[in-house]
Simulated assay, not measured.
Amino acid sequence: MSSLSSRMDSQVFQAFSTYATIVILKMMLMSPLTSYFRLTRKVFANLEDTKLVSSKEDKKLVCIDPDVERVRRCHLNDLENIIPFVLVGLLYSLTGPELSVALLHFRLFAGCRIFHTIAYIGALPQPSRAGSWILGMLVTFSMAYRVLSAVLLL
């Protein structure tokens, strides 16, 4: 048990905790951003939500807006990528990697996700968004490989 405790006190685990918190907070900020886009463009997911801007329900306020959908899809993409990073990164940080290698993984992933959001919401031309997504996935796969090679028991 002392080995697990010492690994949790390690600089790698502290670095992981820092970058995991950054990308989790970034993911959490996508919800208020979606709400902002919905309110400013008067686009609502449900008819009853139209009462936020009108005393009576107005069916024409409920529609699809490309900007709102873009932010929503970006948020869903975060969920598909940040949750695996956090889970794999936690296990990875407990395998005792070199701090410099771990920091490279964590920084690359956090940077990729932040750039991915900028590219997605700003509608930057491809392959900007795809490249950042691929690099972020490769980072997570690299950590997963390290975890499996360190602890694989079949």
Rank of each mutant, 00 (worst) to 15 (best):
I121K: 00
V68L: 00
L29R: 04
L76I: 11
N77P: 01
S5F: 11
S17N: 15
P84G: 03
L29I: 00
P84K: 01
Y120C: 08
L99I: 09
S55T: 12
T21S: 15
D9L: 14
M143A: 00
V53Q: 08
L39Q: 11
M28W: 10
L90K: 05
T40M: 10
Q14F: 14
L148P: 09
H75V: 03
V86A: 10
F16A: 05
Q14N: 15
T50G: 04
A150R: 12
F115H: 09
M30T: 07
S5G: 13
L90Y: 15
S149K: 14
S5N: 12
F16V: 08
F115N: 07
M1H: 13
I64C: 11
S17Q: 15
G136M: 01
M1W: 10
R73I: 10
E69Y: 01
F44D: 08
I82N: 04
L76S: 10
A110M: 00
L25T: 04
T40Y: 10
T95V: 09
L76Q: 13
F115V: 13
G136K: 00
S3G: 10
S6P: 01
G131T: 10
P66C: 09
Y145V: 12
C63P: 00
H75F: 09
L152S: 14
I114Q: 05
R129H: 07
S128Y: 08
L138F: 14
I134L: 15
I118Y: 07
V86C: 09
I118C: 02
V71M: 07
C112W: 03
R129N: 07
I22N: 03
W133R: 07
L39I: 11
S5R: 13
S10H: 08
